[in-house]
Nucleic acid binder design. Structure first.
Length: 292
DNA sequence: TGGCAGGGGTTGA
DNA sequence: TCAACCCCTGCC
């Protein structure tokens, strides 16, 4: 269904909508036809499409400020990319990912999504997000269901979450939602903590380890220094920066990433990740495949 | 049509 | 350090 709401048009430089939405940072967006995407911002359904530098947005009660904040249109993307280390891999990833922005998503939904992401592929995480909305979310006037609040997920319990296809992750999300609904964990408090403390604090949530904590910090709190290392990023680091040396420990990889990629490490991670996932051949060969 | 491998981690021992 | 945890998808 394409929205019947009137469209507003925004001119945005350095922004690629579909690349941003397909890069594995958000799981509530669906491409509903060749042009339009339907997703959620601030608990409201939104329809978005892009033509050149014009972004068309339809939806009820979506303020320009909310859009700018969510898509981070005002962030200095060129400045961010200029701060990347100068190497061939980041150069190529920047060409492929031109206009990809790291969004600012809702902390609770981001936390829930990434708890559900363990051993799951993007399509499956999107399905789980949809299942949670359908079974537990409140219907909006458009007929689409908003993401359920922590209290609703906590009330639903593990058995209901298993019906949403969470599998063993149901136990984690059930416990996590209770921790947050009860106030034992405050996602608001994370905003005021320095990143290392925030990371430790988030890891007190059931189902949140170091990788998921870094995803939450990067995609919900705008902590650009957070560097999530999943199996793809680990492959990338080993292949590109350690030439497949066998004895490199995961700890060494973390230390390298923290020192090499600098304050914009999260962006570098996202660009390398999306470029390689979209072009897996670049790390499958025995030799570097340099495009010149 | 069915069997099988493997996938964007965390937990707990 | 490592098994256990669920189940969907892609492939043969």
């Amino acid at each position: 269904m394409v929205s019947t709401y009137p469209e507003k048009i925004y001119r945005v430089a350095d922004f690629n909508l579909s690349l941003t939405l397909k890069s594995g940072q958000a799981f509530c967006w669906r491409q509903i036809d060749p042009e339009w995407w339907q997703g959620w911002i601030g608990g409201q359904p939104v329809w978005v499409r892009q033509q050149d530098d014009r972004v068309h947005v339809a939806g009820a009660g979506i303020s320009e400020n909310a859009l700018r904040h969510y898509f981070q249109w005002d962030a200095d993307l060129a400045g961010t990319l200029a701060a990347f280390p100068k190497d061939e891999w980041l150069r190529q990833s920047q060409i492929y990912c031109a206009g990809l922005r790291i969004m600012r998503q809702d902390p609770w939904e981001t936390t829930a999504n990434f708890i559900c992401s363990a051993l799951k592929q993007i399509v499956q995480i999107e399905q789980i997000n949809q299942n949670l909305r359908q079974r537990l979310g409140i219907a909006t006037s458009s007929g689409l269901h908003a993401f359920p609040l922590p209290s609703v997920v906590a009330e639903a319990g593990e058995a209901e979450l298993r019906l949403c296809k969470l599998g063993f992750r149901a136990r984690h999300l059930a416990r996590a939602s209770k921790q947050i609904a009860s106030g034992e964990i405050s996602l608001k408090r994370v905003e005021d903590l320095p990143t290392p403390e925030a990371r430790e604090y988030l890891q007190q949530i059931a189902g949140v380890g170091e990788k998921v904590a870094n995803c939450i910090l990067l995609f919900a709190y705008g902590r650009r220094e957070a560097f999530p290392i999943d199996v793809w990023v680990e492959r990338i680091l080993r292949r590109f920066y350690f030439q497949k040396r066998r004895k490199v420990t995961s700890r060494r990889l973390r230390e390298f990433a923290a020192s090499y990629f600098g304050p914009q490490a999260g962006y570098a991670q996202q660009y390398l990740f999306h470029w390689v996932r979209s072009n897996p051949r670049v790390i499958s060969g025995d030799r570097p495949l340099l495009r010149t």
